[in-house]
Design a protein around this nucleic acid. Structure first.
Length: 602
DNA sequence: GCAAGGTC
């Protein structure tokens, strides 16, 4: 018997369907001489410190450097504290009995570092010795699955990938567990002060932005505005210079002449291509911006839609689809022709030429962009409907035509130079789907400008002095923080580290919402309206770590670079020794410098 | 009481 193991039930069932296997059992499916089973993501994790004899939280234990890591069943919170997750335990037992009977195992966990780790941890925990092969596919279509099975790889081809995954996992444990205990103990052991490769740079970003914003000294500056009149239609033009003092501006205001001379008229149509399909992060940002949902809420709503088979896999990091999925888009679009909000645009798109901007098989990694499945939603709650509509609406936008705008820029002379600009949407294209007002519109922008010709003189109907202030960078909210986490590392000077981080930023799509929730639950940050601001505790922790590597995205970047080298065969033990050395160093440093952190009373 | 990673 051959056993196929997938990362999650949805994929296991999908592969079984392609094979034509349909005998459903508890936790697996049989048929055609195969057995199809699955994990639920990580079933196993590195065991907690006490499993290695480090009892309690104590300076004597630090740094905790287990000679050999152990695996433990994933834990869940219950009234008796942390216990083995019963659902996980049960599935692990099912997998064990299937592996026991197997002649061969086919590994169909997601094609990536964590997917490899999910399988290997199960395999080693169960002390399984059966031979295994690897299915390596990046698309879940029938053809891709069949092709993948014709091209199974030897399991050992992925040994170095497992090594890099295992190193990632151990490094996070070593640095995270030790740094957390060291800082908590140093501060007087009154509560948990957690630190980690991802959460600490994230906290640092929020704190740095908060302080920059708080300490910003706004500067007043002045502009002069005039309102020329063309045959009764007035529009606004602003001085091309800003003035530091009111006096300078007053002088320019006084010098405005009775008529303004049109020096130049520049008009050109601009094409604005449709946005890409959503990945998890862009959807979370959009839902936060438009509806105020938190990243965590959006993920959980999406998970419900996914379990209801209404949308495709949500925790994707790709905004693209392959050609195979593209072939299904026309029918998905025509399925929206009865949707209350989207009927009109779905009809417009039906049979039209579709934009292929989101179609690129090379940019599809483990999973493609989020799409509706075509199943009809039925009696969704308001929040679920909102998220569903963001997914469905984005699909219409992504395959729609360009938005075409006429942008006019006019320069006038009236004592000094004045500029006016105007934007007219000629063809809405993809913007017709949601019909939202544009966000980045400047206040000096006119909706439409009258037709003007170079050289003409216009009477100046009004003039005024405008007082303005320079603005600080805004505080982070969930949308801007998610974006910043995605692009974290872009400003790293070292080119190789920058490259290593470019692929992922900080954290992963699946974990970023959880990182924000962790910082909230530690009371390091608070939600203040839509903004994320640090608490005194968060600022105190930041003050201790801000000069250290653990607070910088560079640390994550340097690990990524080394992990990638391990994947291509570099020494595992060398990296492990370096991590241990760093663990000793950061633990000592925090025990010394962490004394200043005072917990605020909850 | 602790990390980050995956998923239900």
């Amino acid at each position: 018997m051959k056993v196929i193991i997938a990362e999650k039930p949805s994929v296991g069932r999908e592969i079984a369907r392609v094979f034509g296997a349909n005998t459903k059992k508890d936790g697996y499916i049989e048929g055609k001489g195969y057995t199809f089973t699955w994990a639920f993501g990580h079933l196993l994790q590195l065991a907690a410190p006490q499993e290695y004899g480090y009892y309690g939280w104590s300076v004597q234990n630090l740094p905790m450097l287990p000679p050999k890591f152990k695996l433990a069943i994933r834990k869940v919170k219950s009234k008796d504290g942390l216990i083995d997750d019963p659902g996980v335990k049960k599935q692990l037992d099912i997998i064990k009995s299937l592996f026991d009977e197997a002649t061969e195992i086919i590994v169909a966990t997601d094609a990536g570092r964590e997917g490899e780790l999910i399988f290997r941890y199960i395999y080693y925990y169960l002390k399984c010795k059966k031979p295994f092969k690897r299915l390596w596919i990046s698309s879940q279509t029938d053809e891709a699955i069949k092709e993948g099975f014709r091209n199974l790889k030897p399991g050992s081809d992925y040994d170095t990938l497992f090594n890099s995954a295992h190193c990632r996992s151990q490094s996070d444990w070593l640095v995270g567990m030790n740094a957390t205990q060291a800082l908590s103990l140093a501060s007087g052991n009154k509560g948990v002060l957690s630190l980690g490769r991802v959460q600490t740079p994230t906290l640092a970003m929020i704190c740095a932005r908060y302080l920059e914003n708080r300490d910003f000294k706004p500067e007043t500056y002045y502009q002069v505005a005039i309102f020329p009149d063309k045959d009764g239609q007035k529009f606004k033009a602003v001085s091309d210079k800003n003035f530091k003092t009111r006096e300078e501006a007053e002088a320019v205001l006084q010098a405005v002449t009775a008529t303004a001379n049109v020096i130049s008229v520049e008009g050109k149509p601009r094409k604005e291509p449709p946005p890409l399909l959503h990945d998890l992060s862009s959807l979370q940002q959009e839902a936060n911006k438009k509806k105020g949902f938190t990243a965590d809420q959006t993920l959980s709503l999406l998970q419900t839609l996914y379990e209801g088979k209404l949308v495709t896999y949500p925790r994707t990091g790709s905004r693209y689809i392959g050609d195979d999925v593209f072939a299904q888009i026309p029918s998905l679009i025509s399925g929206l022709q009865h949707h209350p909000d989207f009927a009109k645009q779905a009809t417009v798109l039906n049979g039209a030429k579709l934009s292929k901007r989101s179609v690129n098989a090379k940019k599809v990694t483990d999973h493609h962009a989020i799409l509706p499945t075509g199943e009809k939603p039925w009696q969704l709650s308001a929040d679920l409907q909102t998220v569903y509509d963001l997914v469905a609406g984005r699909m219409l936008e992504a395959f729609h035509s360009d938005c075409i705008k006429d942008i006019t820029k006019i320069t006038l002379l009236s004592g000094t130079r004045f500029n006016a600009s105007g934007t007219v949407i000629r063809e809405a294209g993809w913007r017709a789907v949601f019909n939202d007002p544009e966000e980045d519109k400047k206040d000096e922008d006119n909706a439409a400008l009258p037709k003007l010709t170079q050289g003409e003189d216009l009477p100046v109907a009004d003039k005024t002095l405008v007082e303005k202030q320079t603005k600080p960078k805004p505080l982070y909210n969930e949308a801007t923080l998610l974006k910043a986490l995605e692009t974290a590392g872009k400003e790293i000077e070292d080119e190789e580290l920058r490259e290593a981080m470019k692929a992922g930023g900080l954290g992963t799509p699946a974990t970023r919402a959880a990182i924000i929730e962790t910082l909230l639950s530690r009371k390091y940050i608070l939600r203040e309206k839509k903004n994320l601001v640090p608490t005194p505790t968060g600022l105190a922790v930041y003050d201790v770590v801000k000069g250290q590597r653990i607070a910088q995205a560079e640390l994550a970047g340097s690990w990524e670079k080394r992990l990638e080298e391990i994947r291509s065969g570099a020494s595992v033990s060398l990296f492990q020794e370096e991590i241990k050395a760093y663990t000793r160093e950061i633990t000592q440093e925090l025990l010394r410098s962490g004394k200043g952190v005072v917990l605020q009373s909850a």
